[in-house]
Design a protein around this nucleic acid. Structure first.
Lengths: 162, 162
DNA sequence: GCATGATGATCAGCATCGCTGATCATCCGC
DNA sequence: GCGGATGATCAGCGATGCTGATCATCATGC
């Protein structure tokens, strides 16, 4: 599922209580792909945030940790470019990650202006937890779609994301 | 396109300058449907907001106006249920719409607690403008997908939106 | 070398949105 | 009628995004 998506994702959103009855979306709006994407995001984010909360994990952390694990230490700028998050917002995220000891700023050996942000052991553990949640949700989300259909969906979302 | 999506949509988001070079999203994150949806939402919202701004239209207005046009006057609660927007947020939206004279609150003839929110003539004109933008974007977004593929995409997004 | 412009990180301040919890008026079922 | 639901509102908080400025440092051209 949405292992994290800070930025477009770290937005406070109504936590549709999952069990609660939800009125179907009006057709005059679901005609629009953008509306559908917005509401899909709203719901997916809600679910993911809810799950994260159970494990005392903050949503915005997940994407950054994932990236640090995958690519190794990198500067805040680079994180921002890859995740499409504003540089000033990234400052706050890294602040939070450091505060929770999930990542740390090291001095960049070649560039004294920049930091290298690095994931910590605690960060790795949190990432493992979050990844399990994400994998489980990913498996459930498109359970009614065949593999060829999923490929189309993925291609469509990649196109829409630019 | 996304004729409006207040709520999950009315969120300030980085306005990817469209022309600007965008780094491709890392594969370790695009594996996750939720991440893709988040980033798709980020981009679509940015584009729509940008277009709306050119015509001095506010994004959150569009969905509400569309609904009022389609279904006629309704209470704020009902608007909120259909659009999945929090009731207290809806108060602010309707305040803004009234301020811009795009909608107005009428007394509900059968329920003195509630209002009937009604679209104005000015609101209708704004809606026309926004609809044109939305239709144009809708036509462009999935231009590379066939009709059967679009049906799958639509069904997937409806599923994800719940 | 050195001036100049670009880049990385940060901050203050503002705007938007969502939510909690409270309040008040009104409706509805018993 | 009475008590519990419901509609609208508000204050206050938290999270996010952005602008524009600052400061340090890098890199380029001369």
């Amino acid at each position: 599922m949405l292992i994290i998506m800070p930025s477009a994702a770290c937005v406070p959103m109504p936590l549709l209580p999952l069990g609660a009855p939800v009125e179907p979306l009006p057709e005059c709006l679901t005609r629009y792909t953008g509306f559908l994407v917005a509401k899909a995001h709203q719901r997916l984010f809600s679910i993911f945030a809810e799950e994260c909360r159970k494990h005392a994990v903050e949503v915005p952390h997940a994407g950054i940790l994932h990236l640090l694990q995958e690519f190794g230490p990198m500067s805040q700028q680079e994180l921002g470019r890859k995740l499409r998050i504003d540089r000033t917002t990234m400052v706050k995220f890294i602040d939070a990650l450091e505060k929770h000891k999930l990542a740390r700023r090291k001095n960049h050996p070649q560039d004294r202006r920049a930091y290298l942000v690095e994931i910590t052991d605690a960060g790795g553990k949190v990432l493992t937890t979050v990844s399990k949640i994400a994998e489980r949700m990913e498996a459930e989300l498109l359970v009614r779609f065949t593999e060829p259909e999923r490929r189309i969906i993925r291609r469509a979302l990649l196109t829409l994301a630019g």
